[in-house]
């Protein structure tokens, strides 16, 4: 207790000092100006991946805009549970925010965590990538129609697909597509993999027939002439991969889903800080640098402000719950 009082005292005097310092520089903004020290941006996925890259470009733009370091901190593992929980349990003071991903609408249905979209203060939706349908270069399917026909006519379990772990977003994409075709979710057998890259290696080596990860993740193997993208599960084509058709225009199946990424903070963040961040995020989203970076990697950009992001997540959460129950992936 003694240390607590001392800490509070010190912190208070420190704040006073800092405020005094800031006051000299900018009298009008002195009181409670945010941010006045470095901000942590927690990323639940590893350095070098798509989420990490997106978070880093956003952070660098926020840093330039708001004049304080925005440090990306990778808290990986546990299928995303570790990082998502670090964001949710941080002090809601605006100095710890993070990039949350589609898994927040899935993990609690699997019984991995109690966290759900409502455990956060949503700030902005920044990106969404649709799943693709990728086959090996030498696969005997000319296009998505031929593949769909083969899947439908052959017995269940003939084909094998991969892209992520059991119950991951790309697995659900496959299940959703199969169900939209009027088949059972396990008509194509799912081979769990440790991410999209090993799944693409399996595809090239002839270990699996289909990979349903996003096209940017499949890109290296496609460029190396080891794989072909047959379709994307999106409402419209991706301008970066304009030759890849959608399911709707080829099969007449109106199924689309996606792995989205957005910025959020712990629940109960002060409204003025959330507002400041949301405004800065909007400026970052509209920045040409952000748009150019995202399109160079083939990542889709989607904007949603705090309210839109919240309702987007609530809707996604419900849809994922239905899909996972139907596929037998929900637990508890």
């Amino acid at each position: 207790m003694a240390s607590f009082t001392r800490r509070t005292l010190l912190a208070a005097s420190g704040t006073a000092l800092a405020t005094a310092g800031a006051g000299l520089a900018a009298p009008a903004l002195a009181q409670g100006r945010y941010p006045n020290r470095p901000v942590q941006v927690i990323v639940p996925w590893g350095a070098g991946g798509g989420t990490d890259a997106t978070a880093r470009i956003v952070s660098s733009l926020l840093e330039r805009d708001l004049g304080q370091p925005f440090n990306v901190v990778n808290r990986t593992g546990g299928s995303g549970v570790v990082g998502h929980s670090a964001i949710a349990t941080a002090q809601p003071d605006g100095y710890t925010i993070g990039m949350i991903t589609v898994e927040i609408t899935m993990m609690h249905w699997q019984g991995l965590t109690d966290l759900r979209p409502t455990s956060y203060t949503p700030l902005a939706l920044m990106n969404s990538d649709p799943p693709g349908v990728t086959v090996a270069q030498n696969a005997p399917f000319a296009d998505i129609r031929a593949l769909a026909e083969a899947i439908r006519t052959r017995p269940a379990g003939t084909f094998r697909a991969s892209g992520t772990g059991q119950g991951g977003i790309w697995h659900l994409a496959l299940v959703g597509w199969l169900q939209a075709m009027g088949l059972r979710g396990d008509h194509v057998r799912w081979v769990p993999s440790n991410g999209a890259a090993p799944a693409m290696q399996e595809l090239a080596a002839g270990g699996v027939d289909i990979v349903t990860c996003s096209i940017p993740e499949a890109r290296a193997m496609i460029d190396a002439n080891r794989a072909r993208a047959l379709a994307i599960m999106a409402p419209a084509r991706n301008p970066m991969f304009a030759q890849v058709p959608t399911l709707n225009e080829t099969l007449g199946i109106n199924y689309s889903t996606g792995a989205w990424r957005g910025i959020a903070g712990p629940r109960n963040m002060p409204a003025e800080i959330a507002g400041a961040l949301q405004a800065a995020l909007k400026r970052a989203y509209d920045n040409r640098e952000f748009q150019e970076f995202m399109s160079s990697r083939g990542f889709g950009t989607v904007w949603g402000d705090a309210a839109q992001f919240a309702s987007f997540m609530a809707e996604g959460d419900r849809a994922m719950g239905d899909a996972m129950r139907a596929a037998g992936l929900a637990r508890g």
């Binding site: 546990g78 549970v81 570790v82 965590t113």
Partner: peptide, 22 residues
């Protein structure tokens, strides 16, 4: 230790979030 590769279930984590990363 952590999330298992077949069913995606946590193993030997004793309810600790950090242990889920293995």
């Amino acid at each position: 230790v952590g999330i298992d590769p077949s069913a995606g279930a946590p193993r030997f984590t004793f309810g600790e979030v950090e242990l889920m990363q293995g």
